[in-house]
Design a protein around this nucleic acid. Structure first.
Length: 287
DNA sequence: ACGATTATTGCGTTCTT
DNA sequence: AAGAAAACAATAATCGT
């Protein structure tokens, strides 16, 4: 067989690949491996009323005007002073007209920040756009007043990741956002409450691929850790525990089982927990 | 405000080289 | 024998309810 259609490992980090919407993304690093947005029927635009009469270029959620903007360039410089002044005036007025209201301005700012965060986290487009949807809903529900836009931008990204089973910790998001972890939480809580986000508890297995590849562990160890995880789940041992810590503990146990050299300290570090926590789930596994 | 989980710190023990 | 890693314990901080 010539070129295989679906290789199942990420070319960057060997993480597992998953199809999400039009994209094939790496669960570990979020790299978009393949994109295919040709002829997939009507564009996916949730929560957007019935305005589906437009046609044209693919729309993106992450610009307030969904990419349908026109700019007046400053290309030719072979103009007389009078025409240059005219053009300059036109350009200024045009740019003003693009942003009709104050609230739109906030949207623009929020979307810009979301783009920036999503870029820093190498998130797939679909997740980024989902974050924009969430942000816009939050503003429509008037959740923003008295709270920071940056916090909501970060929280939107965090929420979108969780909804895509792509969870990042609030610390990870806050690290690249212009908001700290507290701001993120202060924004996320009302969003989760008022918007009724479909986010169940975070499954520790969502962290296995990323941790595993950061530690360069063989795939068989990650697979074994996944098995240990379902054991824990079935015996009800992971209620209320930090999912990162549980994932780290399973990786450690799997490595030790295979006599693969991996210290508690190292897994604990990539999982952003302490060795004590790793040990906690490790001994749970020794039933 | 409460109970459970986790972090932190310190220290005697076990494993590796 | 020396140094690192894992285990243990007590207290403080944090989180979910």
């Amino acid at each position: 067989m010539g070129e295989s259609i679906a290789s199942s490992e990420c070319p960057e980090c060997d993480g597992r690949l998953r199809v999400e919407g039009d994209e094939t993304v790496c669960e570990a690093c979020g790299l978009v491996v393949a994109e295919d947005r040709l002829d997939r029927g009507p564009e996916w635009r949730p929560l957007d009323g019935d305005r589906r009469e437009r046609t044209g270029a693919p729309l993106t959620r992450s610009r307030h005007d969904r990419g349908l903007s026109t700019e007046i360039g400053r290309g030719g410089r072979r103009l007389t002073g009078r025409k240059r002044r005219l053009l300059r005036r036109l350009r200024r007025q045009h740019n003003r007209a693009r942003i009709p209201t104050k609230s739109k301005r906030n949207l623009v700012y929020g979307f810009t920040e979301i783009r920036r965060i999503a870029e820093a986290l190498s998130l797939p487009e679909s997740t980024r756009d989902q974050a924009c949807v969430i942000f816009e809903r939050a503003q429509d529900e008037d959740l923003l007043r008295g709270r920071s836009i940056e916090g909501f931008a970060a929280a939107s990204v965090y929420a979108a990741c969780r909804m895509a089973s792509f969870s990042r910790t609030v610390e990870e998001v806050a690290a690249v956002a212009r908001a700290d972890a507290d701001e993120l939480r202060v924004a996320y809580d009302p969003m989760n409450r008022e918007l009724g986000l479909p986010t169940g508890p975070v499954d520790p297995s969502e962290f296995l691929p990323r941790f595993s590849s950061e530690l360069n562990l063989p795939v068989r160890i990650e697979a074994r850790a996944r098995e240990l995880l379902v054991d824990l789940r079935e015996s009800g041992h992971l209620a209320g525990r930090n999912p990162c810590g549980v994932a780290a503990g399973c990786l450690y146990a799997a490595a030790r089982e295979a006599n693969y050299p991996l210290t508690q300290k190292r897994v604990a570090k990539v999982a952003d927990v302490t060795p004590v926590t790793v040990r906690g789930t490790y001994r749970e596994l020794a039933e």
